[in-house]
């Protein structure tokens, strides 16, 4: 779907992005992870040409984006910013309708789509004629997401989308984000410096440092087959939490529920409220043994 080939970006003498290549499969969620200044945001912004690469090529669906008119390219890519970037002089409805307006949709179609998205993102209709500054941070971020999704673009770029939120709001929005069916079909590239978020939301993670990709792989690959000390060092702090997130719950899930693909962490989270019940005890032990089993199967660090 998206193919990045040996791109470089220099700002004067500083090499911000140094010969990076990666591919993102359709409806995959790729995370660019790293500390600030590692070049992850620059890489992201080159995909919708907010920044032009010094050299290299980027293909979306086999088409070289550098040969496309940039405005047209961007209208087909959703973009979510850290501080939402909502237009303060536009109402919520007008903000969401920006891209449809550029694409010259008729009003009825736009309105229908806006209402659909509001429902999916748990935003009340009464917010439509309200200005962004009257909303809470979480609501603003939802509107920002709605604006990016409104034209149903196949590709979504997200620059630290939850970075400016408080912990409680962030956890809530992350959960909604994971549950949103609309996002499951999309090819997403997301930038974050938050390791837990990367493990929670990413199908694959590219860990970056000093403008280069250090390792690209699934969360489990990064955790249990780190390429070098930098990778293991980067993940060391919250190791246990990460392991729970990286390891898949045994199939079928212990309680026979319908959730087919769930991390161990997510499975454990289901005990949050009814952990006191007796029958859960057995399931809990089941999960734990699955965890040990997986661990034993891995080469020891």
């Amino acid at each position: 779907m998206i193919k990045v080939e040996q791109i470089n970006k220099s700002f004067g003498k500083v090499k911000a992005v140094d010969n990076i290549s990666f591919e993102v499969a359709e409806s995959e969620n790729l995370i660019l992870l790293g500390t600030s200044g590692c070049g992850k945001t620059t890489t992201l912004k080159m995909i919708n040409r907010l920044i032009e690469p010094t050299s290299g090529n980027i293909f979306i669906n086999g088409q070289n984006i550098l040969e496309q008119p940039p405005e047209e390219l961007r209208r087909g890519i959703g973009y979510v910013l850290q501080n939402n970037g909502l237009f303060p002089h536009y109402t919520v409805a007008e903000n969401i309708a920006v891209v449809p307006q550029l694409l010259k949709w008729d009003k009825k179609q736009t309105d229908k789509r806006i209402h659909e998205l509001l429902e999916k993102l748990h935003l009340d209709r009464s917010y439509l004629n309200v200005y962004p500054k009257e909303l809470s941070g979480g609501q603003q971020q939802r509107v920002g997401l709605a604006r990016a999704l409104v034209a149903d673009p196949p590709v979504l770029l997200m620059d630290e989308p939850f970075g400016a939120l408080d912990n409680v709001t962030r956890a809530k929005i992350q959960a909604e984000f994971k549950a949103l069916d609309e996002l499951k079909r999309k090819t997403i590239i997301m930038v974050t410096h938050d390791v837990l978020e990367a493990f929670e939301l990413g199908d694959r993670i590219c860990l970056m440092d000093k403008g280069k990709i250090v390792q690209c792989g699934t969360p489990a690959e990064l955790l249990f087959h780190p390429k070098n000390d930098f990778v293991s060092g980067f993940l060391k702090e919250q190791r246990l939490q990460l392991e729970f997130r990286a390891i898949k719950a045994p199939q079928p899930p212990p309680n026979g529920g319908e959730v087919p693909d769930m991390s161990l962490w997510a499975a454990l989270e289901q005990f949050k409220y009814d952990g006191s019940k007796k029958e859960n005890q057995a399931e809990f032990e089941q999960l734990m043994s699955a965890f040990y089993q997986y661990k034993r199967g891995q080469p020891h660090e």
């Binding site: 890519i77 973009y79 910013l81 970037g85």
Partner: peptide, 13 residues
């Protein structure tokens, strides 16, 4: 700058 960037990223000329 974030608002300008958003405008560019939406595909505005």
């Amino acid at each position: 700058a974030a608002i300008k960037e958003a405008a560019v990223a939406m595909g505005m000329t």
